[in-house]
C-alpha cells in the first residue's frame, strides 16, 4: 500500500517540544534527545530536513510536499513522497510530532 494512504493528508502536524530537544551530530546522522519522553533517536539528514520544516510551523503532509519541491526545485516522485509520509508517521510514533 502506498504510504500516502496510511496518513490523513488533512492533518496538521506540529513539533511537540521544539525548544527542549537536545541535539548532537556525527558524520551523516543527527541524534536527538527528547526530554519529555527520555527517548534518544537517530535521524538521517533527510529526516532532519523534514523535522526542520515542521519546526518552522505546523504543516500538513501536502504542505511538506510543496516545500520539499521548492527545496529540490523539481516535482516529487512517488518514492520520495512515500519517504516523506513514512518519516512523518515515524515521527508521530516517536512522539516528537503530533496532529494539532
Amino acid at each position: 500500500m502506498p504510504s500516502e494512504e496510511l496518513i490523513n493528508k488533512s492533518a496538521v502536524y506540529h513539533v511537540v517540544n521544539t525548544a527542549d530537544f537536545l541535539w548532537t551530530s556525527f558524520e551523516d546522522s543527527n541524534i536527538l534527545y527528547d526530554p519529555a519522553s527520555g527517548h534518544t533517536q537517530v535521524l538521517n539528514d533527510f529526516a532532519r530536513e523534514i523535522l526542520d520544516l515542521l519546526e518552522d510551523g505546523p504543516k500538513t503532509v501536502s504542505h511538506l510536499f510543496s516545500e520539499f519541491e521548492e527545496i529540490i526545485e523539481k516535482e516529487l516522485d512517488p518514492d520520495l513522497k512515500n519517504k516523506i509520509v513514512e518519516t512523518v508517521i515515524n515521527f508521530d510514533n516517536m512522539g516528537i510530532i503530533e496532529p494539532v
Binding site: T24, F26, E27, S29, I31, T40, V42
Partner: peptide
C-alpha cells in the same frame, strides 16, 4: 565504526 554507533 561510526561515532553514531559508539554513541548508542
Amino acid at each position: 565504526i561510526t561515532k553514531t554507533m559508539a554513541f548508542f
